[in-house]
């Protein structure tokens, strides 16, 4: 059991350092359960990192209006975009001969976010002991984390769906467009629901007051 835990901990690091082999393993070799647990763990850690970042980052890199800090929203900002991305990507790749199943897409996306945790988390504490002159290092690291994640997302998508690089880039762009569509549809849906609810409640009011 101890052995298994140890390996499970090393596995995400292996994936982000050797993405081509790692994602192949993720799709064909590893157990689904382990993938799912690790994916959710990474998402939770990312949300936690973001929350801690707004609260505890050093003063020289973190000017945040106290009233705007909202931990629940930080969680939503992590989970919702990931779900949107996965659903949009799955919907498109199913039509476009992608070999990835939804669980593969989800796991590959979550693993791709691991560098954000690995790099940002130590910087929360390190940023408290830097001066303004050292802030460029902070900015550089955070940019590296973002680029690394983007690269992993790209490799993950390519491996999971067995696409060519150009097709992957095309799919990523299409996925972003599809996410926009989904956001629009969601807004439409919610505002319609709102209208219906208010319509029904007004009718009820009208009847109750006249009856």
């Amino acid at each position: 059991m101890r052995q298994w835990n140890r390996e499970a901990l090393r596995y995400p690091f292996y994936v982000i350092l050797h993405p081509f082999n790692g994602y192949w393993d993720l799709k064909y070799e590893r157990s689904r359960r382990l993938n799912l647990i690790l994916s959710l763990a990474i998402l939770c850690l990312l949300a936690l990192t973001n929350i801690l970042q707004t609260q505890y980052s050093g003063f020289v890199v973190n000017l945040v209006y106290p009233d705007s800090i909202n931990s629940l929203m930080e969680i939503v900002y992590v989970f919702v975009p990931v779900l949107f991305w996965c659903v949009a990507n799955w919907s498109l790749t199913t039509l476009m001969d992608g070999e990835g199943k939804f669980r593969d897409i989800f796991a590959s996306t979550c693993f791709a976010l691991a560098p954000l945790v690995v790099i940002h988390f130590p910087w929360i504490w390190l940023s408290n002991v830097i001066s303004l002159q050292e802030v460029p290092f902070y900015r550089f690291s955070t940019s590296v984390a973002l680029l690394w994640s983007a690269f992993l997302l790209f490799v993950g998508n390519m491996t999971v769906h067995q696409y060519s690089p150009m097709k992957t880039i095309g799919m990523i762009i299409l996925t972003l467009v599809a996410m926009g569509f989904m956001a629009f549809l969601c807004l439409l849906f919610f505002s319609l629901i709102q209208q219906i609810v208010s319509f029904v409640s007004i009718i009820y009011q009208e009847i109750a007051l006249r009856g």
């Binding site: 003063f59 002991v129 002159q133």
Partner: peptide, 18 residues
């Protein structure tokens, strides 16, 4: 300095403090 949101001043005294 933190109270007055003065990052430059903060950084200056932080360097010396460190």
């Amino acid at each position: 300095f933190k109270q007055s949101m003065d990052q430059e001043g903060y950084s200056k005294s932080f360097l010396l403090y460190r």
